[in-house]
């Protein structure tokens, strides 16, 4: 039975550690749906600088990713994410893939690595933003990979949450799932309120710089 006391000790230690950690980092506030999306300036895999305000007048999708995460693998391995990217960008949507993994952490890539991934996966984002210091990720309170955001042409946050409504790592679930990003984009295009506008993003935690 000794493992119980060990477990209890570990729990206590974890709670203490948690309290300390949160005391210092709890100031992060999630952006609110319906309010202006936080603006940012990011550098993409080709070294080009993008300012969110450059895309005024266009619908913008933000996608957080980490190629080592099984939930990302679910949506890229099946071709689901690429299909959505190509379909939406063809309709004039700007798709920014953001990588916030810190150097040395899972999913971290340099510009060339990011481009290689895009080619290998046959992906179709408008640009891949490299956010190794986690500034954009923390600005949006992005938590998981994937974590999806939709921003309206007038710069307001319309959707924050999961890629779809089947929170599993199982590729077989994609077929029966409702894609919540497509749902949001369609409702924005139709001028209707987005519902659901906030969902629990599911996936691996983002490997932020500590």
């Amino acid at each position: 039975m000794s493992y119980f006391s060990v477990a209890r000790f570990t729990n206590a230690a974890a709670i203490v550690a948690a309290t300390i950690t949160f005391a210092s980092t709890s100031a992060v506030a999630a952006p609110k749906v319906g309010e202006p999306a936080p603006t940012f300036v990011g550098v993409d895999s080709k070294g080009k600088t993008h300012n969110l305000s450059d895309f005024k007048g266009k619908t913008v999708v933000l996608e957080w990713t980490n190629d080592g995460c099984p939930y990302v693998v679910k949506h890229y391995g099946s071709g689901n994410m690429q299909a959505l990217q190509k379909d939406l960008t063809a309709k004039g949507v700007v798709w920014l893939t953001v990588i916030s993994s810190a150097p040395g952490e899972q999913g971290h890539v340099d510009g060339a690595g990011a481009d290689k991934l895009t080619t290998a996966r046959n992906a179709g984002p408008s640009a891949v933003i490299l956010d190794a210091d986690g500034k954009i990720g923390r600005l949006y309170d992005a938590r998981t990979t994937p974590h999806m955001y939709v921003i309206t042409p007038d710069g307001k946050l319309a959707y924050n949450g999961a890629i779809d409504d089947k929170p599993t790592a199982d590729t077989a679930d994609i077929k029966s799932a409702k894609n919540l990003v497509r749902n949001a984009i369609d409702l924005v295009a139709a001028g209707k309120p987005v519902d659901p506008a906030v969902t629990r993003a599911y996936g691996c935690s983002i490997k932020y710089k500590s």
Binding site: T10, A14, I15, A18, T21, F22, S205, K207, Y208
Partner: peptide
């Protein structure tokens, strides 16, 4: 248990 992972 509450398990801290970064700021999450």
């Amino acid at each position: 248990d509450a398990i801290p992972v970064g700021h999450l």
